[in-house]
Design a binder for these strands. Structure first.
Lengths: 135, 135
DNA sequence: TATAAACCTAGTAACCCGATAGGGTATATG
DNA sequence: CATATACCCTATCGGGTTACTAGGTTTATA
């Protein structure tokens, strides 16, 4: 299940991406348009800024704007920052790998094999979808 | 993230499927082999029995056995009973649909569109994988 | 300098997951 | 019949995560 954090994050990004280049969009504006709690959205945009997707300008007339071109913002990146692993099980995660406590042999594990397939199919979609595709 | 419930359930099913047809496999045996809490596994097998995948025999020499042919047990079914929705967001779930609170128009929602694609790709894998493929 | 906006740190209520406890009930076997 | 075996069922609990809030700080503009 996708967390609301990620969901809100993607929605906010599309809002910002739809803006004319160079213009700002404020938290309050996004929050109202997308029916998101202002404070919660604030924390989400903050992490997106820290990872380098968004830029921000403080003070009157400030707001958020895209740092990259929308075509360069892959969904894999967005989801990994906000949600964490894309894989359904840590033992098949590329970026957040973790061994299972049970399972002496990963290669003999039925769940492992199945979830690798699911992961690859999901990655296929997310890697080939950029912010530009969503606007 | 796949819950341990589902993970354990799939593992247990493969154990049972590997048995000779007609033979029983006991909770304790599965629990030990797969390093699963006995009581927890008990509750999992119980729900699998109630959905008609497994049969059980009480008393000495009892245990669990497959009711269906392994080829007929689709992963979609197993995951839906143990995990719930396969979709990453309720508004694109086929079997557990739920409208979002935010989102006045589903068709205009970027997340919605994206997650339909992810769902379809995941379903492709899970629908075409049966218990027989895992053993 | 007043105001508007992002920044930052904490905290919290509600919820869910994994596990456990403690029995009840049916059924083989001797 | 007696007894052990093994499934059936409900309740509960600790720990972790999620979604969200409070309140103040910093910085830019008018």
């Amino acid at each position: 299940m996708l967390s609301k954090k990620t969901k809100y994050g993607i929605k906010a990004l599309t809002c910002i991406a739809r803006q004319e280049k160079g213009t700002m969009l404020q938290i309050a504006a996004i929050a109202e348009k997308e029916n998101i709690s202002h404070k919660f959205l604030e924390s989400i945009l903050l992490t997106l800024r820290k990872t380098g997707v968004l830029g921000a300008k403080k003070g009157k007339g400030g707001g958020y704007y895209l740092l990259k071109n929308a075509v360069e913002v892959k969904m894999t990146d967005v989801i990994r920052t906000l949600e964490g692993p894309i894989a359904m099980v840590p033992c098949v995660s590329l970026n957040f790998y973790e061994k299972c406590d049970d399972c002496p042999d990963e290669n003999a594990c039925a769940v492992h094999k199945l979830m690798i397939q699911v992961r690859d199919n999901t990655l296929d979609v997310l890697r080939n979808t950029t912010l530009a595709d969503l606007v």
